[in-house]
């Protein structure tokens, strides 16, 4: 028993010891105002070591400083998917809305509820409570014995958790089914066709709710409730890869 405990302690110590070292090269670049270098260095760190909400928030800040609103919003939104309470991402999105003119759909009550924990946590808790509830029902039946007190308590707790998870899952789903406008000037079209009539305009960095895809287009709803079709390449889903897609990179022939 003592050996595993010591091993876990050493591992955690090593993990946190790495975080108490001085500022990284990316942080120094950011502090000096060299935001392009900071973005590049943080991206390398993400590629080599993986993604955290903190890293995504930092990349978002640097992207915003470079004036790339769409990329910054993608980073912040994805950071919130990992950690709904990430202060850097929350501050960035608030700043983008207040100072940057970026529009973001108002959160529904289910989405607000879902931000209590991460989407993955909702799913894990829901799955676990489902299985616990199921097994606490099945096992006594199979054993042809009435459920004892502990079984009933476990069943009630699991069912309650599952009921609580349902709006959380729904909110997390609708929260994640959004996208960020990546192009500078995007027209909201009446029909999902190349020559569709432009109805309204959305700006880079605006967050929209996505609907069904069709003919290379996606139906979206803007923050002020306007709906229309945009080309799939003009927006980037929040639910996706860690770093924003490089739209400037031309496809290979």
């Amino acid at each position: 028993m003592r050996t595993p405990f010591l091993a876990i302690t050493c591992w955690l110590t090593a993990c946190f010891a790495a975080e108490t070292t001085g500022p990284s090269a990316a942080e120094r670049s950011y502090a000096k105002g060299d935001y392009a270098a900071a973005v590049e260095q943080w991206q390398q760190e993400i590629h080599s070591q993986g993604v955290t909400a903190g890293l995504l928030g930092a990349v978002g800040n640097a992207e915003w400083k470079l004036g790339r609103k769409g990329r910054a919003m993608i980073c912040w939104e994805r950071a919130l998917l990992l950690d709904p309470r990430d202060t850097v991402a929350l501050a960035g999105i608030r700043h983008a809305q207040n100072a940057g003119g970026t529009e973001r759909p108002a959160m529904t009550w289910a989405e607000t509820f879902s931000t209590a924990v991460g989407a993955d946590t909702w799913l894990i808790v829901a799955a676990a409570s489902f299985w616990v509830a199921l097994l606490t029902v099945i096992i006594p039946k199979m054993r042809r014995k009435p459920a004892n007190d502990w079984t009933q308590r476990a069943r009630l707790s699991a069912v309650t958790l599952l009921a609580l998870c349902i709006p959380g899952l729904w909110g997390a789903r609708s929260y994640a089914s959004r996208a960020v406008v990546r192009k500078t000037e995007v027209s909201l079209r009446l029909t999902p066709t190349l020559l569709g009539e432009p109805l309204h305009g959305v700006a880079e960095g605006d967050v929209v709710r996505t609907g069904r895809p069709f003919n290379g287009h996606i139906r979206i709803t803007t923050a002020d409730g306007k709906t229309g079709w945009v080309r799939a390449g003009e927006i980037e889903s929040v639910w996706g890869g860690g770093l924003p897609a490089d739209l400037d990179q031309k496809a290979a022939p």
Partner: peptide, 25 residues
Amino acid sequence: SGLATPQPRQGATFLRTQGPVAPLA
């Protein structure tokens, strides 16, 4: 600036996710 100071080391290292951030769902 309304931006918060970046905290790239926020969160424990062992919580890093390799590859794209795809929700469990």
